[in-house]
Design a protein around this nucleic acid. Sequence first.
DNA 1: CTTCCTGCAAACAATTTGCAGACAG
DNA 2: CTGTCTGCAAATTGTTTGCAGGAAG
Lengths: 146, 146
Amino acid sequence: MQNIPSRFDSMLRKLREMGYRITPQRLAILKILAESKGHPGAEDIYALVKTDFPTTTIATVYKTLAVLKSIGEVLELEFSGDYNRYDGKKPDSHPHLICIKCKRIVDPDLTSLDEMAAKLASQTGYKLISHRLDFYGICPECQQKG
Amino acid sequence: MQNIPSRFDSMLRKLREMGYRITPQRLAILKILAESKGHPGAEDIYALVKTDFPTTTIATVYKTLAVLKSIGEVLELEFSGDYNRYDGKKPDSHPHLICIKCKRIVDPDLTSLDEMAAKLASQTGYKLISHRLDFYGICPECQQKG
DNA sequence: CTTCCTGCAAACAATTTGCAGACAG
DNA sequence: CTGTCTGCAAATTGTTTGCAGGAAG
């Protein structure tokens, strides 16, 4: 568990380090990413930013997300049908558990994936950069609702 | 390893069973999926079909892929930036090893994922339907080319 | 014959881009 | 001041859809 201020601070520091300008819109987006418990999409973030900065547009959100992606401070989960989801709390590759009904995404505790990756790299000669592991299923709540 | 005729035949049989019509275009697409060594995208398939059936359109390819997906005879690998890729040889969830330079996708031999999934299901109460495990890296050839 | 499929074109939706004016440093 | 960022609108791209004619069964 990381506490909220530290993620916000480290994102902010990294932005400064890399020479990016600190604008109110960017601060708002950082705050949302650092605080959001789930894995919001661009539109979710946009809706939240707009309450404080009504003139903001979705393009600004996407541009800021692109910057954060490029400096490794946000993890983008791509979905070709649905919109992409963003994880600013744990920006490095990690497994996700996705409910195909309610679309909720949670982070399960899983070990042994790193060992698997290391073995794979030595077996194949690939230089592994990242990975993606998603499990698709139906969460307990949705199972009850039928 | 499955041999080529059997995948083609089982796809064809499944289509028949489910009451879908067997058209020359569909046969051509089945053949491509059953024979292709890689993980072609819709445009790749389209280009191949067009050599035999010049009037075919990409819409037909997508519609056929949708049918095959719905009966579980093809696995769709979604990418939000790039085009999706299709695997007709092994239509069930399995790990992939993706080169971020040349975009080649291969199937590594990995065990232990099923155990991991089983443990996850019992720990979380989710009913797991499928999963997706992609490793992104740089293949040996691309490492040499710099 | 009847229903499903094909081919064409237009529609879609998430994301990206170009540009002029605004603002951070 | 200067270069980057914002906001707006238009472009992009892979994929989907509606519909009329054509073919499978």
